[in-house]
Write a protein that binds this DNA or RNA. Structure first.
Length: 291
DNA sequence: ACCGCACCCTGAGCGC
DNA sequence: TGCGCTCAGGGTGCGG
């Protein structure tokens, strides 16, 4: 599932395929809540435009266009943004995957889950946005238009300090895990990096946010950031559907200490990792290392 | 203001 | 073999 590191890796790798190229044609699937902007209007207004820069805010990608509009992209849970010609078994269904030998893996062909196809005037490689579960989002913002998606976001997780989390947590009775997933507090943290960051900080996910000390908040923010920097450096986590724009898998999942490791021994103390449910989300922690 | 929870969606994995 | 069930999860929005 794409969180800040996967979105940042995607941004860096897709940027050369987007920035400075003139959009010629845009194809979409039918209207659905995937499209916050109706797909026909999206296609009409994107045609002829050039992306001037591609930024990231939390888990959102923001493409600035030459007419002052902004294109928002959110990968949701299963979103995949990649360049034409990418090869990856993650771009195929499991049945299609099973029926193909690895050496037969063919380049991706747009399927019914490919909701956005961008073609460029230079005739070079197109860019696809595929999303099986349609939890992702596409929106075109008018020049200067406020965004109900971007505006409420808190400080980007990579720019945060311990004091930011400490301030936001005062008076809050929720579990620290839930607070970390709140995008209005730290933008970009999802389930993996919340769990891994709490492990690094030695703090249990159920701890009430309001009772954390300054030092604990600092350790948590540092823990989350350390995990994220390391993940970006290794190409992100490819746990379910995440695939980098060139089709390559990330390798950070190999470094996980707790996420999706329930029952397995802690790499530090050998205690079995526990899985609990907090705020309708699974949380993983080591009962030996986290207090 | 805060918090729990239902919902959107699809495919994997399971039991029968 | 195949059906039906459950589960996963980011973000939004509602009700208490």
């Amino acid at each position: 599932m794409p969180e800040l590191p996967e979105v940042e890796v995607t941004r860096r790798r897709i940027e050369p395929f987007l920035v400075g190229r003139k959009l010629a044609g845009v194809r979409t699937t039918a209207p659905s809540y995937f499209f916050l902007t109706p797909p026909r209007r999206l296609a009409r207004q994107l045609a002829g435009r050039t992306v001037s820069q591609l930024q990231r805010r939390g888990k959102y990608l923001v493409a600035d266009l030459d007419d002052g509009r902004r294109l928002l992209l959110h990968l949701g849970m299963t979103g995949q943004l990649f360049a034409d010609g990418a090869r990856s078994p993650r771009l195929l269904s499991s049945t299609a995957r099973a029926s193909l030998a690895p050496e037969e893996q063919r380049a991706f062909r747009a399927d019914r889950h490919t909701h956005l196809r961008l073609c460029f005037a230079d005739g070079g490689r197109g860019v696809f946005f595929r999303d099986v579960r349609k939890f992702g989002k596409v929106q075109l913002l008018e020049p200067g238009e406020p965004s109900a998606r971007l505006d409420p976001l808190g400080i980007d997780a990579l720019d945060a300090a311990g004091a930011d989390l400490h301030r936001a947590s005062r008076g809050r009775r929720v579990a620290v895990k839930s607070l970390l997933l709140d995008q209005t507090v730290l933008a970009g943290v999802g389930n993996i990096y919340a769990d891994e960051g709490l492990f690094r900080a030695g703090v249990r996910p159920r701890r009430r946010a309001g009772r954390l000390s300054r030092a604990e908040c600092a350790a948590i923010v540092r823990g989350v950031q350390d995990c994220m920097h390391r993940s970006i450096a290794t190409g992100g986590s490819s746990i379910s559907d995440y695939v980098a724009p060139d089709g390559a898998d990330g390798r950070y999942q190999d470094e996980r200490h707790v996420y999706a490791r329930s029952g397995e021994p802690c790499r530090a103390c050998s205690a079995p990792i526990r899985r609990v449910v907090i705020g309708q989300r699974s949380a993983h922690y080591c009962p030996g290392c986290q207090r």
